[in-house]
Amino acid sequence: MSKPVLNTAPLDIALIDTAQIYTAPIYTAIVPAAGIGSRMAADRPKQYLTLAGSTVLEQTLSRLLEHSAIGTIIVATSPLDSWFEHLALAQHPRIKQVVGGAERADTVLNALAFVTTDWVLVHDAARPCLQGADLDAVLNAGRQAQGAILASRVRDTMKRGDGHAAIANSVSRDDLWHALTPQCFATHTLRQALTGALAAGITITDEASAMEWAGFRPKLVEGRSDNIKITRPEDLALASFFLEQS
């Protein structure tokens, strides 16, 4: 992860990208980790499965801890979680555990109650392959009214099903993106968007969808395609390979 470089030589202010200069932590990270990951068919939630010598969640948290602009990392877990307390990182001074909710949006909203910074990012617990350059890019882009998310362009031919396992039609992939995380927004704005969308009964699939419902147009920041979300057993081997290459 990139960190500020101290230089005692005279600085040309006109050449400085001030978004890259961090004098103190200015972001709080929220990691929703209340899901059970049923598609993994494992004896524990997927975030606690072993990956590269630790757990999926610890790999994910380590990527965030390396960034100098991120202060507190709030991990929102299930009320029935019995695994988090046994993690090596559970006692880290920058990590705070809170109770999540029934759905992702509820979990993030619960965590937002503990955020004291003006800016917040939300990152999936099961995305352990986040690269530092992508994290820098979305943090910098997110510090504006609309917010920003990491995303990757759709490269495959897209088909819409008819509900009976047959093709209804082809869908143009032009301007289609896969939504990734982290997603970065102004704390107060995201809190209001989530609260309003939930009260209106809107289905919220990610934080950006709540912002879209509230009338915002978050910026798309193109990220690496190896920032995968572990959802199936075969994803563990792929994530392990990506971590070895990073």
Score class of each variant (00 low, 15 high):
70 I>V: 02
199 A>D: 08
67 H>E: 02
137 A>I: 05
163 G>F: 01
5 V>E: 12
79 P>Y: 09
65 L>I: 06
69 A>I: 04
9 A>L: 14
158 M>N: 03
106 D>R: 04
170 S>D: 07
188 H>P: 00
159 K>D: 02
233 P>F: 07
225 S>K: 12
239 A>Q: 06
14 A>M: 11
184 C>I: 09
206 D>Y: 03
97 Q>W: 00
226 D>S: 13
118 D>Y: 10
41 A>S: 13
169 N>I: 09
144 Q>W: 06
141 A>N: 07
41 A>K: 15
207 E>D: 07
106 D>Y: 08
129 C>A: 11
118 D>G: 14
108 V>P: 02
192 Q>W: 01
11 L>M: 15
30 I>K: 00
143 R>V: 13
170 S>Q: 09
169 N>Y: 10
184 C>Y: 01
114 F>W: 15
57 L>G: 00
173 R>P: 03
38 S>N: 10
208 A>M: 08
56 V>D: 01
211 M>N: 02
63 R>W: 06
1 M>G: 10
222 E>N: 10
104 R>K: 10
178 H>E: 08
55 T>I: 08
156 D>H: 13
80 L>A: 08
159 K>F: 07
92 H>M: 11
100 G>W: 00
97 Q>I: 00
185 F>Q: 04
8 T>D: 12
80 L>V: 03
163 G>H: 04
29 A>C: 12
125 A>L: 01
204 I>P: 02
53 G>E: 07
